[in-house]
């Protein structure tokens, strides 16, 4: 418990972590709040409008878009120790590095859940506000809010864990964050284009699958039925986390601490 408490203090004392939470809330709220407007103004592109339930659902599903910040917080919790040199104090206090890592993974899961629940909640509220300008729009499906919140909790935990695993593997914080961003927003989409069938096993495809959406937009080449079911997607994503963390324990966690 004491290590978890220490990790909690590291989480809440560092102002940058609060900055990430605020950024996640803003991204999610703005993104979700303006989606109705975008959907309504580009019916041709998307092939559906707000008179359809799946369109309204996709508005609320956008509330989950802060997930990148869950990964970043995970990365910072671990790589930050090396960047600021606090790894020295951490490992002097708790020299069993595997135990430290286990507690960090736990705290990153909690941090990821908090970031995702708060930002997704803010996003849904912004979505409700945005939708209030379209009184003639379809009703959202009954499960969409619950599904989105469940996806927020699960993805927050999993992505926080993946972040820590990445941060352990790549000790350089900037490199790890920039690498994660480039991977998720550049490399992953390219791989998705090259091998559409493999796409559902790639992180962003898994994240989409994890959200259990039901959206079909042939115009965008986007059909959620191509993705893994939510549970399998979550398990595969966790599998990535386990592989990263295991590699980290076997390699970089054994290295000398400067």
């Amino acid at each position: 418990m004491s290590l978890l408490k220490s990790e909690w203090r590291k989480l809440i004392y560092v102002r940058a972590h609060w900055g990430l939470l605020i950024a996640a809330v803003l991204l999610s709220a703005l993104g979700t709040g303006v989606t109705p407007l975008i959907l309504e103004n580009s019916r041709e592109t998307f092939g559906f409008g707000l008179d359809q339930q799946q369109a309204v659902d996709s508005v609320y599903a956008n509330a989950i878009s802060g997930y990148i910040f869950a990964i970043i917080i995970g990365i910072m919790l671990m790589a930050g120790e090396f960047r600021h040199g606090t790894a020295v104090a951490t490992f002097l206090t708790a020299p069993k590095r595997g135990t430290v890592l286990a507690n960090k993974l736990g705290m990153a899961a909690i941090a990821g859940i908090l970031v995702m629940v708060i930002s997704t909640g803010a996003g849904i509220i912004a979505g409700l506000v945005g939708m209030s300008f379209y009184p003639d729009a379809a009703e959202p499906s009954s499960e969409i809010f619950l599904n989105t919140m469940v996806a927020a909790v699960v993805s927050g935990a999993v992505l926080g864990i993946i972040g820590v695993a990445l941060g352990t593997l790549i000790r350089n914080q900037m490199l790890a964050i920039v690498g994660a961003l480039i991977y998720l927003f550049v490399i992953d989409p390219i791989l998705l284009l090259l091998w559409p069938d493999a796409g559902k096993f790639l992180p962003s495809g898994l994240i989409t699958g994890m959200m259990a959406l039901d959206i079909n937009s042939p115009e965008l080449g986007f059909d959620t039925s191509n993705y893994l079911p939510a549970l399998s997607a979550t398990l595969v994503l966790l599998g990535y986390g386990v592989v990263f963390a295991a590699t980290a324990i076997a390699t970089s966690l054994r290295r000398d601490v400067e």
Binding site: S2, L3, K5, S6, W8, R9, K10, Y13, V14, R15, A16, H84, G85, T86, A87, V88, A89, T90, L92, T93, A94, E258
Partner: peptide, 27 residues
């Protein structure tokens, strides 16, 4: 108790907060 040339404290935290992080970990 150890003091090394690399001290292990976070620049953006106060001295007290730095020690509280360590204190928590050691109970």
């Amino acid at each position: 108790g150890t003091v090394l040339d690399s001290r292990g404290f976070h620049g953006a935290l106060s001295g007290k907060a730095n020690l509280k992080v360590v204190a928590a970990a050691a109970g």
